[in-house]
Amino acid sequence: MSGFATLAPPYSMPSASNGDVELSDSTTNSQSRALNQFLAGVELKAFKIAQAALRHEDDALDAVQDAMLQLARAYSERPAEEWKPLFYRILENRIRDMQRRRTVRGRVISWLPFRADDEDDEQDPIAQAPSFDPQPPRKLEIAEAMGALEKALEALPRRQQQVFLLRTLEGLDVAETATAMGCSEGSVKTHYFRALQSLRAQLGDFWT
């Protein structure tokens, strides 16, 4: 499922192999640097947001990768201030597409007489190996709190979850969140308020 096999090796900067455009061009160079810096700043949070929505690591990686490419192709010449809401808008659309596809696939699979094991779901044995690192109490406490938060976030309706994460984790303001979600600012406020209420209701006892 993951399309990462075709990508350039890690830690290698783009080469100027293409004869049509030379990276020595100062405008292109500064634009590439700015785009690289922007993407480096959002990629981890974007992954976390996509993972919360899709609940699958490789799907989340695919969604973020597609959003990055789409931004680079279609909007890299836009002012850098516009990139963040545009990037999250693309990511939001990508997440929605993947969820729809997954729903359709789920319906089709439910009609099949047997279910073949998806090879993508194979667990990495190294990742599954037990860690021998002793967890200090503080670390354990954070892990428990995070687990509770993730569980509560999973229980939220998708729009509330995305608005909450965009505002709380990514720090987008109401207008930027509205652009990213493709809805009105009033709708963002409503979703955010409801998300806060639900999360507090679920985590209040745990966190106090």
């Binding site: 990462f4 990508l7 590439s32 990055m68 192709r73």
Partner: peptide, 21 residues
């Protein structure tokens, strides 16, 4: 995950630099 995101980022930056300015 960080490594995959890194690769995706460089692919995107390369894609942007291919477009004529």
């Amino acid at each position: 995950v960080r490594s995959h995101l890194n690769q995706a980022r460089y692919a995107a930056v390369e894609e942007a630099s291919r477009r004529p300015s």
